[in-house]
Design a protein around this nucleic acid. Sequence first.
DNA 1: TTGTACGCGTTATCAG
DNA 2: CTGATAACGCGTACAA
Lengths: 340, 340
Amino acid sequence: MSVTVRDIARSAGVSVATVSRALRDLPGVKPRTRDLVLQTADRLNYAGTPAAATLSTGITQIIGIITPYIPRWSFAEMLAGMEARVRLADRDLLVRCVGDPSEPEHRRPHVRLRGRVDGFIALSLAPDSLDLREVLSLGMPTTLIGAQAPGAGCVMIDDRGAAATATRHLIGLGHRAIGLIYGRETENPLALEHERVLGFRDALSHSGLESRPEWAVPGGFTVEGGRRAMAQLLQLPDPPSAVFAFSDEMALGALAALRERGLTPGREVSVVGFDGHDLADLAGLTTVVQPLRRIGELAAEITCAAIDRRTLDISAHVLPTTLVARSSTGPVSVPELADH
Amino acid sequence: MSVTVRDIARSAGVSVATVSRALRDLPGVKPRTRDLVLQTADRLNYAGTPAAATLSTGITQIIGIITPYIPRWSFAEMLAGMEARVRLADRDLLVRCVGDPSEPEHRRPHVRLRGRVDGFIALSLAPDSLDLREVLSLGMPTTLIGAQAPGAGCVMIDDRGAAATATRHLIGLGHRAIGLIYGRETENPLALEHERVLGFRDALSHSGLESRPEWAVPGGFTVEGGRRAMAQLLQLPDPPSAVFAFSDEMALGALAALRERGLTPGREVSVVGFDGHDLADLAGLTTVVQPLRRIGELAAEITCAAIDRRTLDISAHVLPTTLVARSSTGPVSVPELADH
DNA sequence: TTGTACGCGTTATCAG
DNA sequence: CTGATAACGCGTACAA
């Protein structure tokens, strides 16, 4: 079997309490004794049993990530930021996907996760979603990315403002018919993305423009979804001359749809995306850049701080975004689309 | 405090042993008793304490993912596959990044992870790397993706063959000067990617072509790294007319570098990538498509099976790849590059 | 500064 | 089919 604190205690001629204290660098241990213990532990190849410590203290040293979207570029970026940050605190990351529409039975992650983690980071969960409510109901330190809830830490961008900026950019180029490619069609449509929709409408109504319902289509946050969404928009009798997509992946898919029809992005139809994808530059995609790594790091930091009871003075952080204009957006050229 | 099996036992008028058996669907419990226990547990809102079960059984229901590259498209795809698969087995995923060059001190993940997980999936670790050796030294069920080791499960593609196919594609188009953009420069260069390098050389030597050392540059598996790598190649006195990149992200970066110099991919310089990125189509990138989701699922499945002692008959799976030719590769046009 | 002894919640063994 | 009880390995009051 594996070597325990008792083995170390016996071998070093001290008590298990002293071993425990020495191992965890607690005060009140004579340096000489500490060294002896550490050396003995090392000699015996002591590994420790996290489950025992957890059972005794209730601390797991694990932070749970809850998200509906794993294979998204923005998620990978944030995950990288989180991982780097929690590693500094000697913690680990547990990744759990929720809200998969293909999963018939709702497994209630909170039941399984309680006792497995010390806290949560929840991404892209709608503020009023069942998943989020269940996570929050656990009463554990939780940080939300892109949403707010009482008692939870929060890392956000100014979604409404950023969306308005993106839309104004299009309006400034002369576009008056502006479409929208949002994310998922859910029982509560646009819930999470509501702020962006508001910003979009802000900009439109400020310029006296209308937002037609048929100009807003879902893209599921995937490239293929964005492609289909754009195709759908182009089939309309009066398609928009510009489109704002809620993720760069969808925007890039939209560009593909344009090219397939021989249309040039930024000429016949302008497209602006959201995220700051590292391929946006290559594709000439105008986009709203958000600091994703930093968002992940910050969320991890806030969560760690909350777990350590060191509540940060600012629990709601709003990080800046930047609109980067590229060739996918340009002045409106012809009043109506080329063919048909 | 939280409700325990003892509470249920007391409330239901049975013993904790019976409660434990009923809760875990073990045989040897009268249906009536089982129902009583389950109802009572439900009524008391019993949650359970994973740490206690782990301490008692040694089972965590967690699988650890070890990788040096989190923010890579291929990793996200595989992770999605793994997550979906382990969820079916009611397990969770612990993600841990290793080999971060920016981290001075090697934290020895095996020390921290033992006792936290029931098994491992290791991605993109060089066969002879310290990280992999340490993971394997734990003697836990482990599945390797893209590498082989005695005693470990294995999911691979035919890297050598796929690389040869990609290279032959270029040769077939008339290219005789073919460059290589590989991943990371490490103490053991090309270790993980060795098979691909071999396939590359196979194809070259089969056609009597040479592989010049200065035509092979690292791109770090990032878009920006690929861009720089291509820029470096273009600065050579005699740059290659075609380039094979070990990831689509690097290949897409390479395309960007070409465009920046007014060169057209597939005309002056051909580029072929690796992965089957969902943006490859948009960019017209010729690439070797590998079934990443499936690789992730399979790795998770093998690991779960190994943990359950149900060793699968085939522990080493080789999945097929497909070369998809697009516009980024074309016949060699001019003997030397346009300008300079 | 160090040691003793108990508790953490569950599972497994063995007797009934 | 069910019940009592001993592990599991560590943390921590409390005592010394």
